[in-house]
Amino acid sequence: MKKISWLLIVIMILSITPSYGNEIPYTSANGQAAIVMETETGRVLFEKNSRERMPMASTTKIMTALLAIENVDSEKFVKVAPEAQGIEGSSIYLRANERVKMVDLLYGLMLRSGNDSATAIAIEVAGSVEKFAELMTLRAKELGANDTSFMNPHGLHHDDHYTTAYDLALITKEALKKPLFKKIVSTKFYVAESRDAEFKYFSNKNKILNTVEGGDGVKTGFTKKSGRCLVASATRGDMQLIAITLNDGDWFNTTHKLLDDSFELFMPHTVFEKGEVIGVAKLNEGKRDEVNALVDSKIVLPVREEEKDRIQTVIDMPENMEAPILKGQKLGKVSVYLEDQLLATSDLIAEEGIERLTMKDKLLRFLRIQ
């Protein structure tokens, strides 16, 4: 079936320069590396040394939580392995053979930064810390985080345990797609009902929740080798941004400023609404000759005001299709670019079902023509 690509002259946005985010002063980023990324499109709004490999301390636990959520029922009771008791650093004071719900381990991991919780999760998911670290690195590669290597689930220093600000943003972007993860990291206080009273109360250490407008997470981290590391996120209106700073003594002020500057400079711009008609598919042998193609998901891009006049929108759909067509059937896709950078795609689906002509229908058509 022949296919065509239509370049719609619905051009609304222009890409920013390759050195993303020059409009945000570098004085906003006091750390060794930093990045601001929008969560839906992955568009980088600002970066500083974002591809430099660095230790990331307890921000490691973002990946630990992601793998736990993807692989274990959050309501499952986990028997704490003896190896998880007494891990150095931050702790929720797990005891060997204690039975704790996975969801409570996750809150202990992200709110209290429990290294023992990270270890218990790793052993539950993969059978050992070593195998879990391999899974972490593999999952990172699947997300495009190719400059990341995990050696443990908690972030205690190891020379071969590292990431980049860019990779960490990709991992966080994926984790924020999980409703449970979003709920956990935005929670200020939590009671772990499956634990004894003495160790069931967790308070969130992340000041972003209280100091930044729309602040909704994500994770702090610190070791002597890594310095202070912070992954922060905030949502305002239809746009959520991730701001990361690594090895930064002024970590909260840095991410606060980066988020405020980014929200001031960039705005969510709706390119297509869900259900919007943007094309027509021609049909062969159908009771109707064509069917409208609808955008299956809303497309919103983070843009500056001056970028709203040059977006490149490409529709890829067969020139002709064979009936029958079901309502909601995929007909093609639409891709949205900022110059040569692909930022968003959506399936195109049929607005209605179109039946195939029967022999009787063809005969009646023939008789009407005569």
Results as ranks from 00 to 15, higher is better:
Q312C: 00
A234F: 02
F46M: 07
S346W: 02
M63T: 11
A120Y: 09
L283W: 02
S149K: 14
G31W: 05
V231G: 05
K3T: 15
R99V: 08
A145F: 11
T163E: 00
E273G: 01
S19I: 06
T119D: 07
A293S: 09
G227P: 04
T39K: 03
L259M: 04
G108M: 10
S203V: 07
N22S: 14
E276F: 01
P268S: 01
L338I: 00
G114L: 04
K48S: 01
N30E: 13
T172G: 04
L111V: 09
T60W: 05
R288K: 11
T164S: 04
K48Y: 01
A96H: 03
L8S: 10
A29S: 14
R288Y: 01
G89C: 09
D116Y: 05
R310V: 08
L241E: 02
R236V: 08
D250N: 15
A126H: 04
G114D: 10
I123P: 09
D289A: 07
P268I: 00
H158K: 08
K298A: 06
A140C: 10
I16R: 10
M151W: 07
Q32E: 15
R99S: 15
D261W: 01
Q370Y: 07
V231H: 04
E307G: 14
T345Y: 01
Y162T: 04
F189Q: 12
R195Q: 08
L106M: 11
V129Y: 09
D73N: 15
F272W: 06
H269M: 08
N292E: 14
K61I: 06
D261V: 00
K182E: 14
S186R: 12
T148E: 09
R310M: 09
L138P: 00
E305V: 11
A120D: 07
T245C: 03
T41M: 03
E124M: 02
V231F: 06
E352A: 11
K330I: 13
D361S: 04
M102A: 07
Y26F: 14
A323T: 06
E339V: 00
D104G: 09
L363F: 14
R195W: 08
A84H: 07
K76S: 15
G275H: 07
K79N: 13
G215Q: 06
I121E: 10
E23R: 12
K2E: 14
G127F: 06
A175K: 06
A57Y: 02
P153E: 12
V36I: 13
